[in-house]
Write a protein that binds this DNA or RNA. Structure first.
Length: 275
DNA sequence: CGCGTCGCCTGTGGGC
DNA sequence: TGCCCACAGGCGACGC
C-alpha cells in the first residue's frame, strides 16, 4: 500500500530524524534482508557508517551512507520504518533494527514480508539494482508531451501501464484509481488512443493528485497499516474521490461509484465521468 | 508484446 | 463460539 506519496512522506521525515547519525549497531532477522547471505554480512555492511541523506526513486527509499554505500528500502505491502527511542518494546514482525547511539534507532516492521532492505555498494547513483525502474512519476515526469510520447509508444490498458514500475515508478493501486478519476479516463483505455487533451488531463491529474497526497502525508486505510516514521497516520484518505467508495455518489455527477476487478485488482470508478 | 493469473505473506472480517 | 476462506496488494514469474 505505501506508494509514492507515503514513501516521500517517510523520506522527508527520515531526512529530519536520522540524517547525520552514525550506525553503531544492527540487528537483523527474518526474510527482509534476503539479498544478503546472512544477518552478519548485512550488519557489517552498515556498521560505522553515517547517514548522509535520503533519496527516493519510485517506491524505493535510498539511504546514502558515508563510504559510498546505500541502504535501499522497499516497504512492499505492509512495511513500516519507525524511528523510536532505544529500548522501547519492539513490535511483532520487527525484522531489522539499525541503532544510532543511546537515544534512538530505526526499526523495519513488516508483517507480510513483501518488503525488503539491502545495501548497495554501487558508485553510480543510478543503482544497478533499481535499473528496471522507469522514470519517477513526480521527479522525472516533467511535461504532458513527455507523457504523451511514453503512452503512444505502447498499446496497453492505462491502469496496468501506469502501475507498471518499469514504465513509471511510484504509482500503485490506490493512486492510479484517483488519478484516472481526476483525468476522467477509464482504466481500460488503450494508451495509444489518448488525444492531446486527454494526455494533458492525465498529466495534470498525476501531478496534482500525487502532490496533494504528499501535502496530506499519504493515505492510511481502515487497517491503518501505513504510518509515518513517528507512528502517525496520514490524512489523504479523507480526500479520496473513488478509492474504497463503492456505492457512494460520484463527487462530479452523483452517480454511484462502481467497483470492478481489473488485472486482478479492485478498481473503483465512475462509469459516467470516466470514458 | 500484451494481458491475465498465480504465489509469496499475515491480519481481518464475513458467513455459516 | 469457532472455523474456514476470501480478500487486501507490490511484484516477479509464468503461460498463452
Amino acid at each position: 500500500m505505501p506508494e509514492l506519496p507515503e514513501v516521500e512522506t517517510i523520506r522527508r521525515d527520515l531526512d529530519r530524524e536520522i540524517a547525520g547519525r552514525t550506525i553503531d549497531r544492527v540487528v537483523a532477522t527474518g526474510r527482509s534482508i534476503r539479498r544478503h547471505s546472512d544477518a552478519d554480512e548485512f550488519a557489517q555492511a552498515l556498521l560505522g557508517r553515517s547517514i548522509v541523506k535520503i533519496r527516493r526513486r519510485g517506491k524505493y527509499l535510498l539511504v546514502a551512507l558515508t563510504g559510498g554505500a546505500t541502504l535501499v528500502v522497499h516497504l512492499g505491502m505492509s512495511g513500516q520504518l519507525l524511528v523510536v527511542g532505544t529500548g522501547k518494546p519492539s513490535r511483532q514482525h520487527t525484522h531489522v533494527v539499525v541503532g544510532f547511539g543511546p537515544e534512538c534507532e530505526l526499526r523495519f516492521v513488516d508483517p507480510r514480508t513483501f518488503g525488503e532492505m539491502f545495501v548497495s555498494f554501487s558508485q553510480n547513483p543510478e543503482l544497478p539494482e533499481l535499473a528496471h525502474l522507469g522514470i519517477d512519476a513526480l521527479d522525472e515526469l516533467t511535461s504532458a508531451s513527455q507523457l504523451g510520447k511514453l503512452l503512444h509508444a505502447r498499446r496497453t490498458k492505462l491502469k496496468a501501464l501506469l502501475m507498471d514500475q518499469r514504465f513509471l515508478a511510484g504509482i500503485g493501486n490506490l493512486y492510479v484509481d484517483e488519478i484516472l478519476f481526476a483525468a476522467r479516463l477509464r482504466f481500460d483505455r488503450s494508451s495509444d488512443t489518448l488525444t492531446p487533451a486527454e494526455v494533458r488531463r492525465l498529466y495534470r491529474a498525476l501531478t496534482t493528485t500525487l502532490r496533494a497526497a504528499i501535502d496530506h502525508r499519504g493515505s492510511s486505510l481502515a487497517d491503518e497499516q501505513y504510518r509515518d516514521v513517528l507512528g502517525a497516520i496520514g490524512d489523504y484518505q479523507h480526500h479520496h474521490q473513488v478509492y474504497g467508495r463503492e456505492g457512494e455518489a460520484c463527487p462530479r455527477c452523483r452517480r454511484a461509484i462502481v467497483r470492478v476487478k481489473a488485472a486482478g485488482r479492485s478498481t473503483f470508478l465512475c462509469t459516467r465521468c470516466q470514458s
